[in-house]
């Protein structure tokens, strides 16, 4: 495969515990799909059953790939910008100069909080950039936030 790879970048990976958070989310939707499938089966609406079965299959494959997908998430704090990547099938790389930072969010979902994980969102003036680093430990997230704020302050750029 002709995978995209940036030369000379050593990625910092996120916590493997993120797998459980993602699995829980995926499993939840799978349960809903299966329940709907059973109902449709009992009502004998066969088209709906087929569609739901396909969806369930896709979500099972998705669940199976979760560990790899989590492993693919990475970031690197370079001298002047933050580099972020995610995805295996749909690979995505973003480079954001620190000076463009408008604010940093830290979010914790219920399951992630149970596992001691946080999600850090780096917001710029461009809505499309969407740099969200999930699966950071709480200490890591706070340290990263403070670091980003301080480097953004020293490299402040206009809009």
């Amino acid at each position: 495969m002709n995978r995209l790879e940036l030369p000379g970048v050593t990625w910092r990976r996120v916590s493997p515990r993120l797998v459980w958070v993602e699995l829980a989310g995926g499993a939840g939707s799978l349960v809903v799909l299966l329940a709907a499938g059973v109902v449709m089966f009992l009502l004998q609406v066969w088209i709906a059953v087929v569609v739901l079965a396909v969806l369930a299959l896709v979500s099972i494959v998705n669940l199976a790939l979760t560990p790899r997908r989590v492993r693919s998430i990475g970031y690197q704090l370079r001298g002047d910008d933050l580099l972020f990547r995610r995805g295996i099938m749909w690979q995505r790389f973003v480079a954001v100069p620190y000076g463009r930072m408008q604010l940093v969010d830290i979010n914790r979902g219920p399951i992630a909080r149970g596992l001691g994980l946080s999600e850090l969102k780096f917001v710029t003036a461009a809505a499309a950039a969407g740099v969200t680093i999930p699966g950071l430990t709480e200490a890591e997230a706070e340290e990263l936030r403070d670091h980003l704020v301080s480097v953004a302050e020293s490299r402040r750029a206009g809009l």
């Binding site: 995209l4 099938m89 749909w90 690979q91 995505r92 790389f93 973003v94 480079a95 954001v96 100069p97 463009r100 710029t124 003036a125 461009a126 499309a128 950039a129 740099v131």
Partner: peptide
């Protein structure tokens, strides 16, 4: 320029 992105799907 705010940031730059690179995508690749299957």
């Amino acid at each position: 320029l705010q940031s730059v992105g690179l995508h690749q799907g299957p």
